[in-house]
Computed example of a mutant assay.
Amino acid sequence: MTVNRTTAYATTSGVAVHKQPGATALENRGPLPTAVVRDLRDRTGRSPRGLTFGAADLVVVTGLPGSGKSTLMRRAVRGTRIDSQDTRDRWDTRLAGVLPYTVYRPLVRLAHYAGLRRALRAGTAVVVHDCGTQAWVRGWLAREARRRGGTLHLLVLDVGADTALAGQRSRGRGVSRYAFLRHRRATRRLLRSVERGHLPRGCGSAVLLDRDAADALRRIGFAG
């Protein structure tokens, strides 16, 4: 099963996966009647400027380090966003001049997940930054979405390795070669699976974005 890149529109765009009656993703053009894979790549000039999800839904933004996840979230998310980069920035402000990041990285991760837990317990819709290698996080979010009667959705940034590495250089911060290759393998596996219409366990829909489609987005929000 493959994803149609050229004829995709609100009611015909992508691969039907399975029914999720509690939380249907919407595009500016109208509601999607079933959980689907939406492929917005290679749509220069025809990409939506906004995506709206159900009030009880959770959204995960995933892709390579440097692919633009944090930039997209800061620009477009309307509502609660939980971004590990924001957590690291707060800790860097206090400790970067004193300790190498590898020393306090476990504390950054702990603080990130603690902030995510608080946001989920508050019951609000949340957009979460995901590096793509922590499958247990998506499992946690899928369970939480089901508990609240919503759906977990994926936004997958399909950005090449060279572009992602350039993104790391532009922000003056990167990951090790080993870590990048690990992220690259995980992202490739996820993309191949989604393109075949096979979503990670617990996910109700996925939206595939290239750089142009991500740049076109100005709003990621929730109904209600």
Results as ranks from 00 to 15, higher is better:
residue 1 M to H: 10
residue 2 T to R: 11
residue 2 T to D: 14
residue 4 N to T: 11
residue 11 T to M: 04
residue 12 T to P: 07
residue 13 S to L: 04
residue 16 A to Q: 10
residue 16 A to M: 14
residue 17 V to H: 12
residue 20 Q to L: 09
residue 20 Q to G: 12
residue 25 A to F: 05
residue 42 D to K: 04
residue 43 R to K: 09
residue 48 P to K: 02
residue 51 L to S: 01
residue 51 L to K: 07
residue 51 L to Y: 07
residue 52 T to G: 08
residue 52 T to N: 10
residue 61 V to Q: 02
residue 61 V to S: 13
residue 62 T to A: 14
residue 63 G to E: 08
residue 64 L to M: 13
residue 64 L to T: 07
residue 66 G to L: 01
residue 73 M to N: 03
residue 75 R to V: 00
residue 76 A to S: 10
residue 80 T to M: 13
residue 82 I to C: 09
residue 85 Q to V: 09
residue 87 T to C: 07
residue 88 R to N: 01
residue 92 D to S: 10
residue 92 D to N: 06
residue 96 A to Y: 02
residue 97 G to F: 06
residue 99 L to F: 13
residue 99 L to Y: 11
residue 100 P to F: 00
residue 100 P to G: 12
residue 101 Y to P: 00
residue 102 T to G: 14
residue 102 T to A: 15
residue 103 V to G: 09
residue 104 Y to M: 08
residue 105 R to K: 15
residue 108 V to H: 15
residue 108 V to S: 13
residue 112 H to D: 04
residue 113 Y to F: 08
residue 124 T to K: 14
residue 124 T to A: 10
residue 124 T to D: 11
residue 125 A to P: 15
residue 131 C to Y: 02
residue 133 T to P: 06
residue 133 T to L: 03
residue 134 Q to F: 10
residue 136 W to M: 04
residue 137 V to F: 05
residue 141 L to T: 04
residue 142 A to W: 02
residue 142 A to T: 09
residue 144 E to S: 14
residue 149 G to T: 05
residue 154 L to G: 05
residue 155 L to P: 04
residue 157 L to K: 06
residue 157 L to M: 00
residue 158 D to G: 05
residue 158 D to W: 01
residue 159 V to M: 12
residue 163 T to P: 07
residue 164 A to E: 10
residue 167 G to V: 01
residue 167 G to M: 06
residue 168 Q to C: 03
residue 172 G to Q: 02
residue 172 G to S: 12
residue 172 G to F: 00
residue 173 R to A: 10
residue 174 G to N: 12
residue 176 S to A: 06
residue 176 S to V: 06
residue 177 R to H: 12
residue 178 Y to V: 13
residue 178 Y to C: 02
residue 180 F to E: 07
residue 182 R to Y: 04
residue 183 H to F: 02
residue 184 R to F: 03
residue 185 R to P: 03
residue 186 A to K: 13
residue 187 T to G: 14
residue 188 R to D: 15
residue 189 R to F: 05
residue 191 L to D: 01
residue 197 G to S: 07
residue 198 H to I: 06
residue 200 P to M: 11
residue 200 P to E: 08
residue 200 P to N: 09
residue 206 A to L: 08
residue 206 A to H: 08
residue 207 V to D: 07
residue 211 R to E: 12
residue 216 A to S: 08
residue 217 L to Q: 09
residue 221 G to P: 11
